[in-house]
Design a protein around this nucleic acid. Structure first.
Lengths: 150, 150
DNA sequence: TATTGTTATACTCTATAACTATA
DNA sequence: TATAGTTATAGAGTATAACAATA
């Protein structure tokens, strides 16, 4: 019973939700500020990473995964197209659809941006002990699942 | 030895860093998409929350906490000022400084925006068990500390 | 008719550079 | 000189609404 006060506090959903909101806002803003000169932004990087992982995707698929409107995504891919980081291809099976594919240049700039952020983050993680890293690994899984939830 | 593959994987900083990057980007984008009509955005909300928690702050203090340039923050507080969510006051002790203070309207809209996001997040957290919530509580502390790190 | 995608317009958020006022 | 703040300009990222092409 003596150790329950702390645990009960950590488990009260309202307090946890508030702590998570703040933590996520802070770490995201730190990520953004770690961006190097000439590097692409978070939203653009996310599009390129999706194309790398999932292969050619349509505009609707990209906009749903990023949780933005099709109009917003259309403008994002337009910028990427102009920069030469992806190419458009009409889907032969359904000529309304446009499939977006990563170019070698897009792949390279995505890698550079990801590595830069990761170098910084890895430096921070190195200071943690094994148990703390395990906590963050599980938290990453939980947060990803929550983000995908309906 | 049979259980070590998973643990070793979770503890390899490079893999953990990558998983965290993805998880944070996903959950943040989900937060953003949960914004209701007429609600303020993440950056603006963060400013109001700082003013609520830390009392009157100067432009430099606000820009350092948000990790944006003074020029950027000046424009953010301008929008908030025009909307009536904060007020400017010259610091009598140093007339270069401007102290920003939350108005009752600013306090109210910050509460509304925070509650809306929290209602959604609390619903997700309610589906987790006690141990998982404890993991997220510790992760929130670790991520906040990493975000503040030099 | 419904779906896919684009464009026009507007607002938020950010950076950089040039500027004013105060210390 | 150095610091605090503002403004002008530009670009990324987003939403909504109106539109064209295809199913």
């Amino acid at each position: 019973m003596s150790g329950e006060a702390t645990e009960a506090e950590a488990n009260r959903p309202a307090d946890l939700g508030r702590a998570l909101q703040v933590a996520i806002a802070r770490i995201y803003s730190r990520f953004r500020s770690e961006r190097g000169a000439g590097e692409i932004g978070e939203a653009t990087l996310a599009v390129l990473m999706q194309l790398r992982k999932r292969g050619p995707l349509s505009l609707t698929e990209l906009s749903e995964r990023a949780r933005v409107t099709p109009g917003s995504m259309s403008q994002s891919v337009n910028r990427l197209d102009k920069a030469g980081y992806l190419v458009r291809n009409r889907d032969p099976a359904d000529k309304r659809r446009v499939l977006f594919t990563l170019t070698p240049e897009g792949d390279a700039i995505a890698t550079a941006a990801r590595n830069h952020r990761q170098t910084w983050l890895d430096g921070q993680l190195a200071a943690l002990d094994s148990r703390q890293r395990a906590v963050l690994a599980e938290a990453a899984e939980l947060l990803t699942a929550i983000a995908e939830a309906s």
